[in-house]
Amino acid sequence: MNPTDRIYTKDHEWSKIEGNTARVGLTAYAQEHLGDIVFVDLPPVGKEVKQGELLLVVESVKAASDVYSPLSGKVVEVNEALASNPEKINQDAFGEGWVVVLEIADPGEAANLLSAADYDTLLASQH
């Protein structure tokens, strides 16, 4: 069961809307699938991204995975702790393992994302 206080993409990212910003991270399913994360290539603060565009890259020993932005907006905060402790994503994907905070450009886009229940269903269908 994924937390119900946030919304999800099909690519296994979560967004937690906090006023006009959204905290973004990878889901527990994503981190499990990626394996031990060894590096997170964080975007610079101030970077503007569109929904579905490349936001950042997470790397395990033998894979590099692109993470696409769940919403359009500007990166206003990045999780600096991941630079030295990328394993936080593995340990606490929905909490301390968050990756960035976006200033939301278009609140309407949230409607394109999945509810926790829909995301649960998606995962169930992939097994």
Partner: peptide
């Protein structure tokens, strides 16, 4: 740091 290399990152 093999994720920089062609056998993993291919065109990137």
């Amino acid at each position: 740091l093999a994720t920089r290399e062609q056998h993993i990152r291919r065109e990137k």
